[in-house]
Amino acid sequence: MKQHDETRREYMTLAMELKRQRQEGIAEGTRNMILAMLQKGFSAEIIADCAQTSAEYIIELGKKQHLL
């Protein structure tokens, strides 16, 4: 029974780590898409609609990257 509990715990730890990595990957991909759209001249409102985020976030990110 102890071996079963240890294996279950290891599996759950691995599952949580994979989920975290997947979420980070999605966030990085979204950020890259936003930056690419800013570089192509799309408006913050259009990008926000596509990325399902706020225009304020788009503007803040654009300013940090010296694109706005």
Rank of each mutant, 00 (worst) to 15 (best):
Asn32Pro: 02
Ala44Gln: 04
Tyr11Leu: 05
Leu38Val: 11
Arg22Ser: 15
Thr30Phe: 03
Glu17Ser: 09
Gln52Asn: 02
Gln23Glu: 15
Met37Leu: 12
Met37Trp: 15
Glu10Gln: 06
Gly29Trp: 14
Gln23Cys: 10
Ala51Tyr: 00
Ala36Val: 03
Ala36Ser: 14
Phe42Ile: 01
Ala36Tyr: 08
Tyr11Pro: 01
Glu17His: 07
Arg22Glu: 12
Leu14Ile: 02
Glu17Gly: 02
Arg22Lys: 12
Glu17Asp: 13
Arg31Val: 00
Ala48His: 00
Ala51Lys: 01
Met33Leu: 12
Gln21Arg: 08
Met16Asp: 05
Leu35Val: 07
Ala51Cys: 01
Met33Glu: 10
Ile26Ser: 01
Ala48Thr: 00
Glu28Leu: 09
Ala36Asp: 15
Glu24Ile: 03
Glu28Ser: 05
Phe42Thr: 02
Lys40Gln: 13
Glu10Phe: 10
Ser43Val: 02
Lys40Gly: 12
Gln23Trp: 08
Tyr11Gly: 04
Ala48Cys: 00
Leu14Pro: 01
Arg20Met: 11
Ala27Glu: 15
Glu45Gly: 11
Ala15Gln: 12
Gly25Arg: 01
Thr13Asp: 05
Arg31Tyr: 02
Leu18Lys: 10
Arg9Trp: 06
Arg20Ser: 14
Arg22Gln: 09
Leu35Trp: 02
Cys50Gly: 03
Ala44Met: 11
Ala36Pro: 03
Ile47Lys: 04
Phe42Gln: 04
Gln23Thr: 08
Ile46Ala: 14
Gly29Met: 13
Gly29Cys: 13
Ser43Met: 02
Ala44Ser: 08
Glu24Thr: 03
Ser43Arg: 02
Ala36Trp: 06
Glu45Ile: 07
Glu17Val: 13
Tyr11Phe: 09
Gly25Thr: 01
Gly29Ala: 14
Arg31Pro: 00
Glu24Cys: 03
Met12Asp: 04
